[in-house]
Design a protein around this nucleic acid. Structure first.
Length: 456
RNA sequence: GGAGAGGUGGCCGAGUGGUUGAAGGCGCACGCCUGGAAAGCGUGUGUACGGUAAUACCGUACCGCGGGUUCGAAUCCCGCUCUCUCCGCCA
């Protein structure tokens, strides 16, 4: 765990929890089902060194047990000294014993700390265990198509992509964005800017009004502890934009802010360090926010257009669910995202990511891919995942179960949907031979009755 | 940014070095009482890790966070952080 000075109370609490829990995986599960876990992790593929784990865990346990014995002895001696003193007795012998115990304890604690650290480092890079229903595979080619909804439209002209369409309309300006900020930004104007806003409003209304989500507005700058909670840190720091807090500048600081790469971070962290009452589950949140990603390592990928930007808007769905309900919740959440595409009359397909294509923290992920005529391909527009208790353990996000005991919740999220990519899909799928864009009926009320965007 | 006050259990609130995981109250749970309920009475009521398979029992840690002093720290010292009030600034 990277050193961070000046943690606030909540962060520190999480840090402490991480130290004691040590794992993103359930340590209990690891101990009792080590071989089964290792076998499934091999499908990702991830090689879990079970012998090393057992050695580290045994070492940690031995040290802890011994340290606790010594602590118990120290406490007993201290108590005795107090009692003896109050009676005016001689405490010299007791003090000697106590000094011995403390000497041994001091040495032991150092070793215990190191053992803890080694185990922590070992477990920090272990990804989540894939759910049994996840197909085994190593590349996107091994993803399993679940369903395909809607047929790609037949064009009697050669369809353009959104960049050309936007240029022709005079309403998408990548050059201006490059001048103002740099590559991977866009300036939208007029009807396209409004369409972008309309899409987000439409999604929010559907999810709050029909799917039972509570709309939330959250910080777009977050602290490091939140990013640890959802798993972006410590492993994926390069993907994030950092905002130095000190006016002084330059040097990285524990108090730094990070721009959110997705609303998943602030929204899921709502339950960090909380114990949610059983009857409150599931919690369902929807949040429209900008997202900021450095796209380090994506050089040369999707450089054209709005598909991969440093800044984009997204409407995010988050659920905090009872473990017994989380897979039903994943199906429901995916369906909620799909319903947006259906209402926008956009063809799409749903795939189950294979073990090799899933994210680090996910136990199961459905990607929803929308048809883009400009690319003649299905492109990801939403990714819906069940993290089971992986994030919850890092966050200390729990609920009080039927027996009254705190237990980690299951967390889920999915885009519902990425607004920029939806805009692209609406433009490309609705394009007419004359370069105008016919809008899906669902968006017309959000466009003040406008049904078609015409070139200026 | 300047000045001051404060962070104790689900909540309120005691507690300035010794048998305090923490008085008391509220809330909550169970029991008694009642035809039923309220009131009243009694008992209980934090989290994590470890010993264990165990929600039984035992141990350890935790009174904002980190460090220090001490045989012993909620209590003393240092650093930090957050909250509140006033001033300044500001959308």
């Amino acid at each position: 765990m990277p050193k961070r000075e000046m943690p606030d109370a909540g962060e520190a609490r999480t840090q402490r929890a991480l130290r004691t829990i040590e794992s993103m995986l359930d340590l209990q599960l690891l101990r009792t089902n080590l071989d089964a876990v290792a076998k499934r992790l091999a499908d990702r593929p991830f090689a879990l060194d079970t012998a090393t784990f057992q050695a580290l865990e045994q070492g940690r346990k031995d040290l802890q047990t011994r340290a606790q014995e010594l602590q118990a002895r120290r406490n007993a001696l201290a108590k005795q000294i107090g009692q003896t003193k109050s009676k005016g007795g001689d405490t010299a012998a007791l003090m000697t014993d106590s000094a011995e115990v403390n000497a041994e304890l001091g040495a032991l604690e150092k070793g215990a700390e190191e053992a803890q650290k080694r185990l922590q480092d070992f477990l920090a890079v272990v990804p989540n265990v894939p759910h049994e229903s996840v197909p085994v595979g190593t590349s996107p080619d091994d993803n399993a198509e679940v369903r395909r909804i809607g047929a790609p439209r037949k064009f009697d002209f050669t369809p353009k992509d959104h960049v050309d369409l936007g240029a022709r309309l005079g309403l998408l300006d990548f050059e201006a964005a490059t001048k103002i900020a740099g590559t991977r930004f866009v300036v939208m104007k007029g009807a396209i800017a409004r369409l972008h806003r309309a899409i987000a409003q439409f999604m929010l209304d559907v999810h709050t009004g029909e799917h039972g989500y509570t709309e939330v507005y959250v910080p777009y700058l977050v602290n490091a502890a939140s990013l640890y909670g959802t798993g972006q840190l410590p492993k994926f720091k390069e993907d994030l934009f950092t905002v130095p807090r000190g006016a002084a500048s330059g040097e990285a600081d524990a108090g730094d802010f990070y721009l959110i790469p997705t609303a998943e971070v602030p929204v899921t962290n709502l339950v960090r360090d909380e114990i949610v009452p059983l009857e409150k589950l599931p919690l369902k949140f929807v949040c429209h926010s900008p997202c900021f990603r450095s796209e380090a390592g994506s050089y040369g990928k999707d450089t054209r257009g709005m598909i991969r930007q440093h800044q984009f808007d997204k409407v995010e769905l988050v659920q905090i669910a009872h473990p017994a309900q989380s897979y039903a919740a994943l199906d429901a959440l995916t369906g909620h995202a799909e319903s947006i595409l259906q209402r926008l009359e956009l063809p799409y397909r749903v795939v189950t990511l294979c073990t090799g294509d899933m994210g680090f923290s996910a136990a199961k992920t459905y990607d929803i891919e929308v048809w883009l005529p400009g690319q003649n391909a299905y492109r990801e527009i939403s990714s819906c995942s069940n993290f089971e208790a992986f994030q919850a353990r890092r966050m200390q996000a729990r609920f009080r179960n039927e027996k009254g005991k705190p237990e980690p919740v299951h967390t889920l999220n999915g885009s519902g949907l990425a607004v920029g990519r939806t805009l692209v899909a609406v433009m490309e799928n609705g394009q007419q031979a004359d370069g105008s864009i016919a809008l899906p009926a669902a968006l017309v009320p959000y466009m003040g009755g406008v049904q078609k965007i015409d070139p200026a």
